[in-house]
Every structure is written in C-alpha cells, then in structure tokens.
C-alpha cells in the first residue's frame, strides 16, 4: 500500500499529530514499507474464520456496585499542566 502525503495528513489529523515537511516524507516512506510488510497476511486463507476479538475464555463476572474510594478533588488536579483552584484550564473553546 503506497501512502501518499495527503493520506499522511489525513491520518495525522485523526491521530492529533503533526509532521513538518521532512518528517512527513519519512513517515510516509516508513508507513509504506511497514504496510507492504504486513500485507503478507493476504497470503493466508481466512475464509470462514471468525476474528479473535477477546482473549479471555471466562464468562464476564459482575461485582456488586457499591460506593468505594475515589480521588479527592485536590489529588485529581495534582497532575494538571494548568489549573485553577477548582478546574483544569485549557485554551478558550468558544469566542
């Protein structure tokens, strides 16, 4: 699968990443190389095979829903890159 610049830009936007012109070329080539490599899987006949979507062989176990410990307001804000007394702060969303 040949990846072009437009695809890189589209995927980078979805992944919330940016690449400058030089990095864009590198990631384009790297993605192309790796996708060509994983396409080996097309040699495998998977007709009528169900995809493996869950690694557990056990049935889901439910627990009682009860009130337990939770983070205090203060420790919730502890790691915030920017905050005020009560809230996380981010750049303005509405004008």
């Amino acid at each position: 699968m040949k990846i072009d610049r437009e695809t890189v830009r589209k995927i980078a936007h979805l992944a919330r990443l940016e690449f400058d012109e030089q990095a864009e070329d590198q990631i384009k080539d790297s993605m192309t190389e790796i996708l060509d490599w994983v396409e080996q899987l097309n040699e495998v006949d998977t007709t009528d095979i169900q995809p493996l979507t869950n690694m557990s062989l056990e049935v889901n176990k439910f627990r009682e829903d009860h009130i337990g410990e939770h983070l205090s307001h203060q420790s919730g804000l502890l790691n915030a890159p920017k905050k005020d007394q009560h809230y996380f702060r981010v750049p303005k969303v509405l004008d």
């Binding site: 995927i11 980078a12 993605m31 790796i34 996708l35 998977t46 095979i49 169900q50 995809p51 493996l52």
Partner: peptide, 25 residues
Amino acid sequence: MLGTFVLSASYYDAYYTKAQKVRKL
C-alpha cells in the same frame, strides 16, 4: 499513525479484521 490508519473506516477490514482472523488461526 499506522494504528490509526489500519483502524480507519476504509481499511479496517482489510488490515485490522484480517489480522484478528490470522490471530485466531
């Protein structure tokens, strides 16, 4: 980037689901 690509709508089945099937095998 590669993960986002293989999960994107147009390529999901061709890559991601295919790999899950091979994983089963």
